[in-house]
């Protein structure tokens, strides 16, 4: 499947990806309204981690073995058989955060108010995820998994799945 990858050497940690992700998942499509008027403020489904010169725009990599799906207490986390996307069924999610504890990327966000897990949905309905489309440095790419040897194998890979 197509996934978003970060080109670390050109990511400068400007966090525009985060801003556009928030906007994409806000009620309003207006940037100013979404950020200044919405309460609670819209939550991003990605995060930018920084250490010294390294900055990484981090989001769910839709792992093949999806430890979050395996751990989910209620069955709210599922892999969509067609899109292969890992999704959260809001009705079934109880905000127990078991998925948070097992995700190797810390890619599950907590909507603490609604008590629902949030995660990257690769901007369903958009041709290109908005974080990728709006990165001024082209530090994010949306491509097929580059090479099977580089596939995201989460450490929780069990047996031969």
């Amino acid at each position: 499947m197509k996934k978003v990858y970060v080109k670390e050497e050109v990511c400068i940690g400007c966090r525009l990806c985060e801003v556009y992700c928030q906007l994409q998942h806000a009620h309003s499509s207006d940037l100013v309204k979404a950020f200044k008027k919405e309460s609670p403020p819209p939550l991003p489904r990605l995060r930018v981690d920084e250490r010294g010169v390294v900055s990484l725009s981090v989001r769910c990599q839709q792992c093949d073995d999806a430890p979050c799906v395996q751990a989910c207490l209620t069955g709210a986390l599922e892999r969509n058989p067609e899109s292969l996307l890992v999704t959260v069924d809001e009705d079934r999610c109880i905000g127990c955060w078991t998925c948070v504890l097992v995700c190797p990327l810390a890619a599950i966000k907590q909507d603490k108010e609604q008590k629902k897990a949030l995660k990257c949905d690769l901007c369903q309905g958009e041709e290109i995820p908005v974080c990728v489309a709006n990165c001024p440095n082209e530090a994010l790419v949306y491509v097929e998994e580059p090479d099977s040897t580089l596939k995201v194998e989460s450490p929780a890979t069990q047996g031969h799945e």
Partner: peptide, 17 residues
């Protein structure tokens, strides 16, 4: 965060070549 980890680990985790 991931950037706090040694480079080979975050590269592997994020499939960054």
């Amino acid at each position: 965060g991931l950037a706090s980890l040694p480079e080979e680990i975050w590269r592997a985790r994020l499939a960054v070549p």
